[in-house]
């Protein structure tokens, strides 16, 4: 699947900008600098929007396409921001046969976002992940570090409500 690209506005604090500038400065002129730059930029911002990638490209004197190509090749790079609460729905085999797709569908309807997206108010972000090793509890989802198991779609409403306050 093509990586989802955020269309939410980019927010940048002076501290974050300063940190990224320092990262780029430290990597300038080095071969293979794009990967470490992306890693550290993601640590600073949580994701890699176009504004950040453009800054890296100009700073390291490589094309934006080269930076983007790397950022879409490796799965650990995200092009969408993470919300204050991050939801992962397991779509591993066991969860899937137990109806995880219905759980995921309920969440997307409820929040109005697709996997790899973030709600506009920044409260929730969503991923569909592979097996998290809790097959006995299938179907499973996690919110931040909390695990919720043996789900039916209706459970989603009460779980999400806890985080909405």
């Amino acid at each position: 699947m093509q990586k989802r690209i955020s269309n939410l506005p980019f927010h940048d604090t002076p501290e974050q900008a300063q940190k990224l500038d320092a990262v780029i400065e430290s990597l300038k002129g080095q071969k293979g600098a794009v990967m470490p730059a992306l890693h550290q930029a993601q640590e600073i911002y949580g994701y890699l929007p176009i504004e950040v990638q453009e800054k890296i490209a100009k700073g390291l004197d490589v094309s934006l396409e080269e930076v983007y190509g790397v950022s879409t090749f490796y799965s650990q790079f995200a092009l969408t921001p993470k919300g204050r609460n991050h939801i992962s729905v397991c779509l591993g085999t066991a969860c899937y046969v137990k109806g995880a797709d219905k759980v995921l569908e309920r969440i997307t309807q409820k929040l109005g976002i697709q996997p790899e997206e973030c709600t506009e108010d920044g409260t929730f972000s969503l991923t569909a992940c592979r097996c998290i090793g809790a097959c006995g509890l299938a179907p499973v989802m996690t919110v931040n570090d909390e695990v919720y198991g043996r789900l039916v779609p209706e459970d989603v409403d009460t779980i999400l409500a806890q985080y909405m306050a």
């Binding site: 699947m1 093509q2 990586k3 690209i5 176009i50 990638q53 490589v62 094309s63 934006l64 396409e65 080269e66 930076v67 983007y68 190509g69 879409t72 090749f73 490796y74 799965s75």
Partner: peptide, 27 residues
Amino acid sequence: HVSVIGANNRGFDTEIGCAFEKPLGDV
């Protein structure tokens, strides 16, 4: 020395295109 196209995404999804999937007319 233009480099506005490259390989995006991975594996079966790999396609040649521009950064952030912009059309060529916008880069």
